[in-house]
Design a protein around this nucleic acid. Structure first.
Lengths: 220, 220
DNA sequence: ATATAGTGTGTATTTCTTACACTATTAAAT
DNA sequence: ATTTAATAGTGTAAGAAATACACACTATAT
């Protein structure tokens, strides 16, 4: 009546115009040389959220990441060597904070690498299923969640915001309608600054106002 | 790195105009004499869904119940005798099928009893938190889920359907607007029958067409 | 016949969604 | 100085959906 117990993380980031997921290459059987979600065993006295923080820190050097539980995956046959229950989390890191700092830290992972969600490799275990479920949830809550803002830098343009929406929803949106909708939300703050270093008309920068967001959704 | 592993079920039914949850009275320490969610250990080679089926069958005699995973609860301190990870499920049984058949089957449960969600007793462990989360999910998916129809008998009136919505959303709805909305859904079938044995104008009966529902949501 | 209790319906108003094309600004290239 | 290339930024009309609101109808019981 006991089971092995791990955490697996779907780590998202947004760059190069695409929603990306961080995968690790296994250096151990089973599924040696396959890509897999980063995951570890949970300590006996360790809270799941702390395990997620630990994994995030070891992989990306970041201490505070957005996280949300996805659910438990515990199929008897999901691991060839006997049941291992995993609790999956979706987490988000800002690419600016993380860029070149990704490092696999254990000897059972050869490397870690970002993949655009559109071009995922074949995955070990039931990790494809976990990612699919995570993406589906991200999609269905995109309007009610702070996730899109976690994917963006603190100051962002409306075009960037639209790109995040588009890559999550996997469809194109009309620019004018999108801006109208965003303007109605009431929790974006227009900054007195514009983009720098671009060779075309610089776009206005905006900032997400979390307090107002929480007010309009009754503090979640 | 191993943990005890249980399933807890939030079992819903609808009767007496209220959404109800089935609770069991514990006959064992810790939390002896407290009300708790029905739950059991999961067998080593048992799929979680099968454990849920087993629990449902033992409590209610039903073989097929609607079920949906809520998530894992694994706080280090949730159980005074050491970590027990539980995976919570929401399940729904039709009251007509179940009525007086509720029976606690083990010696560690004294009785099982329905409680309206509005009037829950104090609960053992973190079960209050689990129920709250389950109710919140039910609420937020009420329009996209078959749950409301699982709560109703096969043939139902629009008033009954409205009552189910109202008890899930915990607010009153306008009858005319509700019917207009329902009519637009397109997956309710009007039957040539009406209610029997009522001492007022008999209401038209309707039936849920699952195939059409799935079509309109792209088969989930 | 009449009281009761719940069924069943329509319309106007507002709000949200969708569809759609041009001008403005900037840096770089000539 | 002018042109080019790239992206930012904006408004309006039509249709769809959501909301607010009140009364007549019908089956039964007494």
């Amino acid at each position: 009546m006991q089971t092995h117990f791990t955490i697996d993380c779907v780590v998202y980031s947004f760059f190069e115009g695409d929603l990306q997921v961080l995968l690790t290459e296994r250096n151990e059987y089973p599924y040696k040389d396959w890509w897999a979600l980063p995951g570890f065993f949970v300590g006996n006295l360790e809270e799941m959220e702390d395990a997620v923080k630990r994994i995030s820190y070891e992989l990306t050097g970041l201490k505070d990441v957005f996280m949300e539980q996805l659910g438990a995956f515990a199929g008897v046959k999901r691991h060839p060597q006997g049941r291992i229950l995993t609790v999956a989390y979706s987490t988000i890191v800002r690419y600016d904070d993380v860029k070149s700092q990704i490092k696999p830290v254990t000897d059972y992972m050869r490397q870690a690498k970002w993949f655009p969600v559109k071009e995922l490799p074949e995955l070990a275990f039931d990790h494809k299923e976990i990612i699919d479920k995570s993406l589906q949830k991200l999609k269905s809550t995109v309007n009610y969640s702070t996730a899109v803002y976690e994917l963006l830098p603190e100051k962002f343009t409306l075009t960037q915001l639209q790109q995040v929406y588009e890559s999550i929803l996997n469809k194109e949106l009309d620019k004018r309608n999108f801006r109208k909708k965003i303007a109605n939300l009431g929790f974006l703050k227009e900054l007195p600054e514009v983009q720098k270093g671009v060779s075309y008309r610089a776009a206005r920068l905006y900032k997400f106002d979390k307090r107002k967001f929480q007010k309009s959704f009754g503090v979640e």
